[in-house]
């Protein structure tokens, strides 16, 4: 008799499971349609434009392609873009981690306000971000005349471009870390402190390993945006070729000069830099996973 009851229950639970499975498994044509739409979308909006950039870049052959990249103005744009990334990414790394750490591990008044402030660059249009700096540091701005008198150039020079880029890319690292660190809570840190770890040790051996992936992801996004930022940089750059033109601005200039092959050549280099960033991220992830696996074996 007992067997009969259990069979009935089993049948019921199977039915129940079947329902659950039904809820997550659509019929094959729906699945195919959805995957198809996804692939089409991916192909049309990501792969095709990316391919077009390279095809257009090489339209006039390799010689023209290389000539566009070794042109002094292009070369200085490339150097400026790398400088922007090299300065703004570490800055955002340090301040992003500090902000996320402060917000998720401590209680203090004005915390919500700080989170809102961190989000500000996301909600403000990049053009406005650039204008903010013109209003503050421009000749008619609050500090403009003082900088002018002391012959310090902020706007329409490299410092202004760096400031605008840092402003625009600020949320990437912090925004990536805050939900992650909030989910992890602070028990591990508290345990470390009870065991006698000091501030830096807690961060280095407890917090950092936990947030490493989020951090790297944030840095990758931050880097991509820093190299590619157009709007804010365009406002504060002054468009001086060979001096304050970053790669995105240089692409626009070349395009406007009917120099399409060169424009796409520089654009393709920008795309390659983005792809390299992705490769680095993948490599770091793979490497870290291996180290993790080795540690487990030990």
């Amino acid at each position: 008799m007992a067997g009969g009851i259990s069979t009935a229950i089993d049948a019921k639970s199977i039915k129940c499971n079947q329902k659950l499975i039904d809820a997550t498994q659509e019929s094959s044509w729906v699945r195919r349609l959805l995957i198809g739409v996804g692939l089409c979308y991916f192909f049309l909006f990501l792969l095709l434009p990316l391919g077009a950039v390279f095809v257009e870049a090489l339209r006039k052959g390799w010689d023209a392609y290389l000539a566009a990249l070794v042109d002094p103005d292009a070369w200085s744009a490339i150097k400026l873009t790398l400088l922007i990334a090299v300065v703004s990414v570490p800055m955002n790394l340090i301040f992003g981690v500090a902000a996320a750490w402060a917000i998720t591990k401590f209680q203090f008044p004005g915390k919500r306000f700080l989170i809102t402030l961190i989000d500000l660059p996301f909600s403000v249009s990049p053009v406005i971000a650039g204008l903010i700096f013109v209003l503050v540091f421009g000749a008619q701005g609050w500090f403009g005349s003082w900088f002018m008198d002391n012959d310090i150039k902020i706007i329409f020079a490299v410092p202004g471009i760096l400031l605008a880029t840092i402003f625009v890319t600020f949320p990437f690292v912090a925004r990536e870390l805050i939900p992650l660190m909030e989910a992890q809570g602070k028990e591990e840190e508290e345990a470390a402190i009870v065991l006698g770890a000091r501030g830096w040790q807690v961060f280095r051996y407890v917090t950092l390993p936990n947030i490493l992936w989020g951090l790297i992801y944030g840095v990758v996004l931050c880097n991509a945006r820093a190299m590619g930022e157009f709007g804010a940089v365009s406002v504060v750059s002054g468009h001086i070729r060979g001096e304050t033109n970053s790669m995105p601005l240089h692409v626009e200039i070349l395009y406007n000069e009917y120099n399409f092959a060169a424009a796409f050549a520089v654009a393709s280099l920008l795309a390659v830099l983005a792809l390299v960033t992705l490769l680095i991220k993948t490599f770091v992830a793979w490497k870290a996973a291996r180290i993790h696996a080795e540690l487990k074996e030990d």
């Binding site: 013109v134 540091f137 421009g138 000749a139 008619q140 701005g141 403009g144 002018m148 150039k153 706007i155 329409f156 002054g238 468009h239 001086i240 070729r241 060979g242 001096e243 200039i253």
Partner: peptide, 20 residues
């Protein structure tokens, strides 16, 4: 000689704002 080009008003605005 360095060059900077753009829409006239934007360029004049930049010079007034401190583009040297």
């Amino acid at each position: 000689i360095n060059q900077s080009h753009g829409g006239s008003s934007k360029q004049v605005g930049a010079v007034i704002a401190g583009l040297e």
